[in-house]
C-alpha cells in the first residue's frame, strides 16, 4: 500500500479531496437514519451512506496510519471536501438529487483511478465500483419515478436541481497539483474530461425525464477546496462528538 511519504503533494491532494468528499457525503446521508420517506428507503439510503464512509476510510488509509484522528480531528481549513458534500440538504428531494449528482461524479472519479499505478488502489476501485453500480441504480430508479409522477414531485426536483447544480458543477474544480497526480500515474483522466463526461450524462438523464434546465456556472469561492461552507463547522462538531469524549480510546 502506498504510504503518505511516498505520495507526491499533488497525488495526496487528489486522494484527500476524494476521501473528504466520501466522508462528508456519507455523514450527510447518514443523518437520514430514521427519517427516510419509508422504511425500505431508510435502510437503502443508510446502506449507501455506510458504503461511502467505507470508501472514505479506505482512501484515508493511503494518506495516514491514524484514520480516525485524521478523519475527525483536523482543522476545517485542512479538509478538502467539495461544498456539494458539506451542505445539509434537510429536505428529501435535495438529499436524493444530491445523491444522484454526486454518485454520477463518483463513478467517474473511481474510473480515473482504475488504471492507477498503485495495485492497492486498483483493488479498492474494483470493490467500490461494485457498490456504486447499486448506488446509481438506486438514485436513477427513484428519481425517474418522481419525474414520471405528479407535478409536485417534479417541481421539487427542479428546485433541488436549481439549488444544487452550481455546487455540483464546482466539484470538478481541479485540486492543487492535479497535473502531478496525472504525471505520477495515480489518475489517468483529468478533471476537465471527467467534468465533460459528467455533464453529458447528467444532461442526457434530465432530458429523458423532461427536466432539462439551464446549465449553471460553478459556484465560486471553494478556492481549490481550501474554503469551507458556513455549515461545515457545525457538521464537523457533530462528527467529533464521540471521539472528543476520549480521543485516545480505541474503538
Amino acid at each position: 500500500m502506498t504510504t503518505s511519504d511516498q505520495l507526491s503533494p499533488g497525488s495526496r491532494e487528489w486522494l484527500l479531496a476524494f476521501a473528504d468528499d466520501e466522508h462528508m457525503i456519507g455523514s450527510r446521508h447518514a443523518a437520514w437514519i430514521g427519517l427516510g420517506p419509508f422504511l425500505e428507503e431508510d435502510l437503502a439510503f443508510c446502506s449507501i451512506a455506510q458504503d461511502e464512509l467505507g470508501h472514505a476510510i479506505r482512501l484515508y488509509e493511503f494518506i495516514t496510519d491514524e484514520v480516525d484522528r485524521f478523519a475527525l480531528l483536523r482543522e476545517p481549513a485542512e479538509y478538502r471536501s467539495a461544498w456539494l458534500t458539506e451542505l445539509p440538504c434537510d429536505h428529501w428531494d435535495q438529499a436524493l438529487t444530491r445523491h444522484w449528482l454526486y454518485d454520477q461524479a463518483e463513478q467517474l472519479r473511481w474510473g480515473a483511478l482504475s488504471r492507477s499505478s498503485d495495485d492497492g488502489l486498483q483493488a479498492l476501485v474494483a470493490r467500490a465500483e461494485r457498490e456504486e453500480a447499486f448506488h446509481r441504480q438506486h438514485a436513477e430508479l427513484f428519481l425517474s419515478r418522481i419525474a414520471a409522477g405528479g407535478e409536485e414531485g417534479r417541481a421539487r426536483i427542479r428546485s433541488a436541481l436549481e439549488f444544487l447544480l452550481p455546487y455540483a458543477v464546482a466539484i470538478w474544480e481541479p485540486v492543487a497539483g492535479e497535473s502531478e497526480a496525472l504525471s505520477d500515474g495515480l489518475i489517468t483522466t483529468g478533471s476537465d474530461s471527467l467534468a465533460q463526461q459528467w455533464e453529458d450524462s447528467i444532461k442526457t438523464s434530465l432530458e429523458g425525464w423532461d427536466l432539462s434546465t439551464s446549465w449553471p456556472q460553478p459556484i465560486s469561492g471553494q478556492d481549490n477546496r481550501h474554503a469551507r461552507t458556513p455549515e461545515f463547522p457545525a457538521l464537523l462538531a457533530s462528527l467529533q462528538e464521540v471521539i472528543t469524549i476520549d480521543s485516545a480510546a480505541i474503538w
Binding site: 425500505e40 428507503e41 435502510l43 437503502a44 447499486f134 441504480q137 430508479l141 419515478r145
Partner: peptide
C-alpha cells in the same frame, strides 16, 4: 412502488 424498485429495496431490507 413497482417491480423494478422492489428488487433493490428488498436487497437492502
Amino acid at each position: 412502488p413497482d417491480d423494478e424498485m422492489a428488487l433493490p429495496l428488498a436487497r437492502e431490507s
